[in-house]
Design a protein around this nucleic acid. Structure first.
Ligand SMILES: [Mn+2]
Ligand SMILES: [Mn+2]
Ligand SMILES: [Zn+2]
Ligand SMILES: [Zn+2]
Lengths: 137, 137
DNA sequence: TTCACAGTTTAGAATAATTATAAACTGGAA
DNA sequence: TTCCAGTTTATAATTATTCTAAACTGTGAA
């Protein structure tokens, strides 16, 4: 969870001017207890539902891209037609429920790997992501 | 690797008429040694590069969808804007190289998991996919 | 063998998600 | 307070995919 001041610092520290729009979007993303998994569309709804003066969809896209570049959010692997983002930037894993299309975090230490292959020559491992797809029992 | 006759049987067995177009696409997909990772666009190129009478892009899309439904190919997790498919329908894992945007198969037994979390209530695990992202050493 | 017709292919239109454009606006340094 | 680079916005453009409906074809029955 992050308060307004921290959010402004976070923006400044990544060379993003703390505009009204960015602060609002950042609070929606980061001023919460739980990880938020979202698309541009769902974020747009979440940000604009109770507002008279709306933040434009272009700004939603611009801001998501800026936050991603700054490393404040990360993009998630899916096979959905929309891009999914995650406010949890730590290495971690996911359950994916195709029925609800919802992702749930799995803490990094909840998955223990005993063996993984060596990366190809000239490459090293940047990240390892496990996605566990679910179905009705 | 699969020959023409086997491919026709494969089509028939999934209630897909073995049309000229489907046989051609299926041979391009399945009559090969190695796994093929592809998008609608790359398959379209691969199928049509040396042809005078071209298979339409709509048929490429239709056929990919039909083969996916029939379980002859599977869709892969990515954070790319295009859908990626895989001719390897066995459970397996991937290296992903963001520089080349290329996926490489990792055999199922090359990754050994020591511990994974229990699925949420009422759900069971359908599949578990590991994606190892690479970067330059 | 021919016929009939459901299944299939196709060009092009439509839609959905995202990105680009360029004019108006604004945070903040001076 | 002014100035201007950075930002927002409406809207156009682009990209990937799906839809539509007319033409075509594989196949089972006659
Ligand atoms: Mn994808
Ligand atoms: Mn995706
Ligand atoms: Zn997450
Ligand atoms: Zn594969």
């Amino acid at each position: 969870m992050q308060q307004k001041k921290e959010i402004i610092n976070k923006l400044r520290s990544s060379n993003l001017r703390p505009t009204k729009q960015r602060i609002l979007i950042a609070r929606k993303l980061f001023d919460r207890e739980e990880t938020f998994h979202f698309t541009a569309e769902s974020l747009n709804k979440a940000v604009n539902e109770k507002r008279h003066t709306k933040i434009s969809l272009a700004t939603i896209y611009n801001t998501v891209e800026a936050f991603k570049k700054a490393g404040h959010i990360r993009e998630i692997l899916t096979n959905n037609s929309k891009s999914y983002y995650d406010t949890n930037i730590k290495s971690h894993h996911h359950f994916y429920d195709p029925d609800s299309k919802k992702l749930t975090d799995i803490d990094y230490q909840e998955v223990i790997l005993k063996k993984i292959p060596n990366p190809p020559k000239g490459k090293k491992i940047k990240d390892l992501e496990v996605v566990i797809s679910l179905q009705k029992k």
